[in-house]
Design a protein around this nucleic acid. Structure first.
Lengths: 272, 272
DNA sequence: GCCGGACATTGACGTGGATCAACACATGGC
DNA sequence: GCCATGTGTTGATCCACGTCAATGTCCGGC
């Protein structure tokens, strides 16, 4: 059930003062899937205090050890969350729309443990931290939504760790390619979705080893030429690189339990 | 509560563990620090449906890919959450009181991604999953508490990843020992808190490597003999193994924002 | 007592992947 | 046009760890 947010549109457009925004904060919040179910009033109040920023690739959004000033919602682009040692960065988590960036730090009022850097030009929705926490504390539906989001992000992390610990570099590359092919018609060439160096860091390896892994792929039915992947022998590839739903599955954001669902009477149903 | 050193029982058999406990579910919930602030009524209702189990070391609490039946609160002992590949297990997370085991899976109604195995005899409080979700959906204070818990667990996980990615095996061992020494008077011998093989897996290395790392420690002012650590040169050790609050800090569970605290203006201290 | 089984230590060995380095290729600014 | 910069490939090298194996020690059971 979609609640129209018309009532709150009466509020003046404070977003107009914000740095160039292709879409207003209000629309972005309405588009955020895991916020469906949160009362329009609450979203409107958040939107009222929010800013929308466009941030070019390479820039830093926040630094580790900083105390969160905003709750950051990524609505467009890609952001890397990086562990920092001296000058070297290593990717810990990859944020994509519509993730929030490290909500845990914002909620628990603690310093960020990671640096956030834009990998592909991003659009951010920035909500002042205090306002965000107040809203979560005040609105139960919002609290449930954030809880579901946080849970999903936790599980994505676990998947990532398993991928790192349980598979070799070649296996990670292979399964990555096979995931790309999921749902595509076989034999159709597939473009890699980002630069190879980004894929490599996402897979927890250096450009060099990723490159070598890709050449080795030919032995197993996968050919990559430039940024195009061609499946030459799907069976063979699947045999060598079996996908594991507990690692490679998509992490759905399941609402913990929405009031209307409970009322509707599926109290003990366990949808898989 | 002392270790009864119960004879045998080394084999897992959940049904054999007595559902009746030394302490009742109600008391355990009242003792759980991060549940302070949740109305007694809600806790009482949860306790009404809960079971308390004593589980011997070595037994499996749940298997990966299982759908959660209970929300599991660890009130005593240690539980490892393990990634599984064929026969090999590798530790992803270490749960200690008063953690919940993978609340994300329970909340989002999704299969566990990890296996849970008891490392040191544990006492569990088991709340039927549906009842737990209902309670979270119904009680805002509980929802906030779980959110804070989940956030803390997320951050612990990030700390763990940073520890693995950013430090060598020797460094992890060194910083581990130095953390033990925190708050102890210098020069006083310190007993290792668990078997070395458990520490090793907690630090993400094999027993052998850990053993070698410990011998190497002598070069840096830390001497370990058997299960006893003696600090011989604190300055030197600290220089070689600097503790990083963003990795080695304790993760406090900060209530997101409780109405009474906001009014009282007494936010819990920010450790570190 | 003796024995079997966990835990721990130490040595020898192999290796996956990072690191260093050289080079090709594309892009964009001026 | 030309040059600077970032990307990708390939080769040579290195080393931090894991693996395998032998040995020692402690402990509980019979």
């Amino acid at each position: 059930m979609e609640l129209e947010s018309s009532p709150d549109l009466s509020q003046a457009d404070p977003d107009r003062a914000a740095p160039i925004s292709p879409a207003g904060a209000r629309e972005w919040l309405r588009l955020t899937p895991w916020l469906a179910g949160v009362p329009a009033g609450t979203l409107g109040r958040l939107a009222g205090e929010a800013l929308v920023h466009r941030v070019p690739a390479g820039s830093m959004i926040f630094e580790q050890a900083e105390t969160p000033v905003f709750a950051t919602l990524l609505v467009c682009g890609t952001v890397g969350l990086l562990a920092v040692r001296d000058a070297a960065e290593s990717l810990v988590e990859l944020a994509t729309p519509f993730d929030m960036l490290l909500p845990a730090a914002v909620l628990n009022r603690q310093p960020y443990l990671l640096r956030a850097r834009v990998l592909e030009e991003a659009h951010l929705l920035l909500i002042p931290a205090a306002a965000f926490r107040d809203a979560v504390a005040a609105d139960h539906a919002l609290c449930l939504a954030i809880l579901a989001l946080q849970a999903a992000q936790f599980r994505r992390q676990v998947r990532h760790i398993k991928n790192m610990q349980l598979r070799s570099a070649v296996e990670r590359a292979g399964t990555y390619l096979l995931r790309l092919a999921q749902g595509q018609s076989a034999r159709r060439p597939i473009r890699l979705p980002m630069e190879k160096r980004l894929i490599a860091s996402q897979l927890g390896m250096t450009r060099e080893t990723f490159s070598r892994a890709l050449s080795a792929m030919a032995k197993h039915g996968l050919k990559v030429d430039g940024d195009v992947l061609v499946i030459e022998d799907l069976e063979r590839a699947r045999a060598r690189f079996p996908l594991d739903p507990l690692i490679d599955g998509d992490e759905a954001i399941n609402p913990v339990m929405k009031a209307e669902f409970r009322a509707a009477g599926a109290p003990h149903g366990e949808p898989q």
